[in-house]
Simulated assay, not measured.
Amino acid sequence: MEGAVTSGLLLALCWALAPSADAQEGLCYEQFGAGKCKELLGEDVPKADCCLNPDYGYQPRAGAPCQSCRQAEWSDWTPWGPCSVSCREGVQRRSQTCQGQGQCSGGLRRRWETQACSLKDCCPVMGGWSSWDPWSSCSVTCAEGVKRRIRRCTEPAPVCGGSCLGHNSETVPCDTNKICPTHGNWGSWGQWGPCSATCSPEEAGPKPKQRRSRVCDSPPPSFSPPGFPCSGSASEDQSCTGLPFCPVHGGWSDWQQSSPCSVTCGMGRVMEKRLCNNPAPRQGGNTCPGLNTRSYFCNTKIPCPVDGRWSEWVEWSICTRPGYTGDITCQEIVGQQKRTRVCEGRSPDGKRCVGSYIHIRSCYNMFRCKLEGQWSDWSSWGLCIPTCGKNP
């Protein structure tokens, strides 16, 4: 029925202008998805060659909008955006983008859909603080510390996610009038001493060592009251590193083709590899600089299959009741409406469209019919006005 709101959702369409015509030569990409080109295949490629594969993307020049080689069609809906309010009823929206060569329905670029949303059925109400609890004891047994007291957000308690303004605790300084002991702490480690040998043996066995030390003076432990001495060792040893071995730096072998053309239609890639074995790095030598793979594009000059795609649905037919000889206009009699669509653009070796070409639904023929209104139940009584004062 015209003017009806489907499933309680308010639908709205917002359209943007279509893009300008493509140039003849530009940048060819192996993939096109989610409205973006991916994996550059080649530059200065004729558009006709690039679009032998309808799954590719095409860009007339760097920085220009990227378009799919397919005929224009609407993208999937984006996820629903956030609700416009944090409590009670608001709205959220999502959009579709026209992608591909040519124009989508209406010759425009983008459309929007909105729906009602509600994150919470109620809005937050602030609470009130209880009285402060008594102060706690001092947090330390010597020198200065703090005392703490707390209160609770219960008078009244907040409603629907509300809270109380301010903090639920307070602290104040306190002094025990007692001196605390000073515990020892290690100073920084000194420099490593020389190695016990000038080279490292290749066979298994003891390795050359070097030593460093530290002093318990940051600070030293107090005598009265007595503090704890530093824990742990005043020195440590480690094996020497970097003793001479001649490094051998790696070198690349010749490039070798590792795969044929990646596609049997349209444009693809040929991969080449090389090994870091001429010579291989050893004894701490540097590995080979640069990449071990590279690719260049290949053109089969063979068009790729094009799968069929559904056209837009045509308008719903007039609501009628099949086999019923009377007129159901403005009658509470269930009828039927139908609409159809066409599978377009399929090449002989492409896939057929998935799904049905026809859509049938139940309806009532109530367009511009006069219907008698009916009162709802009375709402609750409002507050008395005025709220105070003498009776007349």
Rank of each mutant, 00 (worst) to 15 (best):
S139A: 10
S239N: 05
C216R: 02
A280T: 15
K36M: 12
R110T: 01
P54C: 01
V263S: 08
E30R: 13
E170K: 02
M267T: 04
C330V: 09
R61G: 04
P305F: 12
G266C: 06
R214G: 00
G161D: 01
V159W: 15
V314H: 14
L10F: 03
Q191R: 08
E30D: 11
G100T: 10
V334E: 09
C28S: 08
V354C: 06
G193L: 09
M366E: 05
G102R: 03
T6V: 13
G184T: 05
T320R: 11
C142V: 00
K178A: 15
R148D: 03
R149A: 05
G335H: 05
W15C: 04
V263E: 07
Q103F: 01
R211W: 01
C384N: 02
M267N: 00
E25W: 04
L27Y: 14
D307W: 11
S218W: 05
Y357K: 11
S136W: 13
G284H: 14
G290P: 07
S235M: 10
Q336V: 12
W80K: 14
E30M: 11
C246Y: 11
T154V: 13
D76A: 09
N292S: 06
D49K: 10
G102L: 05
N292M: 04
C330T: 15
P65M: 00
L275T: 10
T182F: 04
C199Q: 13
A16N: 13
G127Q: 02
D349T: 12
A62R: 10
A16T: 09
Q374E: 02
D327C: 08
A64G: 01
Q331H: 15
A197I: 09
C66Y: 07
P220C: 09
A280F: 14
Q99K: 06
C104W: 06
G42A: 10
T6K: 15
H249L: 11
G107R: 03
P79M: 09
C230A: 03
T6S: 11
Q115V: 08
S86N: 06
D175W: 05
T329W: 14
P392N: 00
V45H: 02
P244A: 00
N53K: 01
G102V: 09
V314R: 13
P19C: 08
G81C: 09
Y58M: 07
P156E: 00
V85W: 03
C50H: 04
H359R: 13
R282D: 14
N185W: 11
G227T: 03
H183M: 07
T198S: 08
G350S: 12
R111S: 04
E170Q: 08
Y357R: 14
W132D: 13
F245V: 00
V270T: 10
E344C: 02
G90Q: 02
C50M: 08
V334G: 09
L371S: 13
R274C: 13
